[in-house]
C-alpha cells in the first residue's frame, strides 16, 4: 500500500530529554494505524509531530524528516497542513458555543461564509460522525450540554468538516464509558474508506479490534511495525511480545 505519511530518522527532544529516537515509519493510506506502548514511550509525541502541534511546546528540537503526500511538513504552511491532517484529542474539547458553530468553525476559518454551504457541510460532517440524528433538533444549543461520548463524536465531526485527508486521534476513547467507546470504534472503522486514521491507544484490545497496522513504541524508539494481526500473533521482537502479553506496561 502507498504511504501517505513518511517519517525518516525522526528525533525529538524536549529540552535535553529525548522523546523520539530515530523513528522511521510509513503510514499506509486509507487504513487505520494504531500506535501502542506504555506511558511516556513517545507515541503521543510522534502523533503530535505529524500535524506540528509540538511546535507550540517551548524548547522542542526536531531532526529528521516527516513528509505528508510527498511534501516536507516542516517546510509547508502549518495552517494548510493542519487543514489536511486533522486531530481529535484525548479529552473531548468542544468549544463553549453552539453545536452548529462548533462544526462550522473550521470551514469558516478557511473562508466559507455562505450559509447554504455551511449548512450542508455541518450536516454532512455530523452525519459522517454518526451524531446527526441525536443533535439535528438542537443545533443552536450549547455543545457543552452534550454527554462525553456525544462531545467526542462532535469533535470528530468538527475535524471532518474541514475535509482532512488524515485524522490523528490521541487516545480518543480513554475518557469515555464502554458504550461510547464502542460507538467511536465503530465510527472509526467506517471512516477509514475515506480517511487515513492514526490512533494512539492505551488499550491493546482496541488496537486489535479496529486497526489494520500497529506500531509499538518503547522509550522513544519504534520497536516494531506491521500488520496488526501478525504483530499481535507473531511479534518479531522480544519486547513487543513481553508488552502484548502483559509482562510490563
Amino acid at each position: 500500500m502507498k504511504p501517505i505519511i513518511t517519517a525518516k530518522d525522526l528525533c525529538l527532544w524536549y529540552g535535553s530529554a529525548q522523546a523520539l529516537d530515530h523513528i522511521t515509519l510509513d503510514i499506509p493510506e486509507n487504513s487505520i494505524t494504531a500506535l501502542i506502548g506504555p506511558s511516556g514511550c513517545g507515541k503521543s509525541t510522534f502523533l503530535k509531530t505529524l500535524n506540528r502541534m509540538n511546535d507550540l511546546v517551548e524548547g522542542v528540537k526536531i531532526t529528521g524528516t516527516v513528509t505528508y503526500a510527498g511534501k516536507d511538513v516542516f517546510a509547508t504552511d502549518v495552517n494548510q497542513l493542519r487543514k489536511e491532517v486533522g486531530m481529535v484529542f484525548q479529552k473531548p474539547n468542544p468549544f463553549p458555543m453552539s453545536i452548529y458553530d462548533n462544526v462550522a468553525y473550521g470551514p469558516r476559518t478557511h473562508g466559507i461564509t455562505a450559509k447554504k454551504d455551511l449548512d450542508q457541510i455541518v450536516e454532512q460532517a455530523l452525519r459522517d460522525a454518526a451524531i446527526w440524528d441525536e443533535v439535528k433538533d438542537r443545533l443552536k444549543k450549547n455543545a457543552l450540554g452534550l454527554s462525553g461520548g456525544q462531545q467526542q463524536r462532535l469533535c470528530i465531526a468538527r475535524a471532518l468538516a474541514v475535509a482532512p485527508k488524515v485524522l490523528l486521534m490521541d487516545e480518543p476513547t480513554s475518557a469515555l464509558d464502554p458504550i461510547s467507546t464502542s460507538r467511536i470504534e465503530e465510527l472509526v472503522t467506517q471512516l477509514k474508506d475515506r480517511y487515513t486514521i492514526i490512533m494512539v491507544t492505551h488499550n491493546m484490545q482496541q488496537a486489535v479490534r479496529v486497526s489494520d497496522y500497529t506500531a509499538f513504541f518503547l522509550l522513544g524508539e519504534l520497536v516494531e511495525f506491521g500488520a496488526t494481526e501478525s504483530l499481535f500473533s507473531q511479534p518479531v521482537d522480544r519486547r513487543t511480545e513481553d508488552y502484548i502479553t502483559g509482562r510490563f506496561g
Partner: peptide, 25 residues
Amino acid sequence: KEYEDASLALGATPEETWFRVSVPA
C-alpha cells in the same frame, strides 16, 4: 488550553484562535 489546541489543530492561525475562541470563552 484544550479550546485553543482544538482551534489550532483545525488550521486556524493563533490570532484567529485568540479572537474567535479565547475571547468568546
